[in-house]
Amino acid sequence: MTVEKKNFNLATSELTLNHAKQLQTINKVVLNSHYDLKFSKNACNDLTLLGFFNDITSGAITCKKLDEKSIEIETIAVLKNYQNFGLGSLLVKDLLKNLSTLKFQKAFVKISKLNNITIELFKKFEFAVDTECKENVERDEDFVYLVKDIVAEN
């Protein structure tokens, strides 16, 4: 659900080294993740976005490059108090936009089966259940695997 009001100002921007700590903080608080600062620093590229709500950093999305054509979304997180305002959607939307400019063709994501909200979020952006299974990779029963073909922008 996107709420649009005059005092609600959503935006995203690419992560820079100077704000790596903010990404770490968000992932730690929301995902209870063990990623260290090095992870955040490595994530400083075109594929990582910070989300802002009224200029306050309140969400983040990070990706891992699988090969030249495809990426996997590693984390997506929005601070508890800023959820349900459409920031997650905006993060995915802007990321997809970036990916298409960078000529990526496929985006993968692996989500826990219990995490319905996130699954719904990605499905909204036409992510579909990935039926193909890569060789030698055993899939975890507890997770859903989604994939989206990205249409290149002209």
């Binding site: 009001k5 005092n7 709500f53 009224n54 306050i56 108090n81 800023y82 305002f85």
Partner: peptide, 10 residues
């Protein structure tokens, strides 16, 4: 009538 942004709490 309108809801306040979460930043207001902050």
């Amino acid at each position: 009538e309108e809801l306040a942004a979460p930043t207001a709490t902050l």
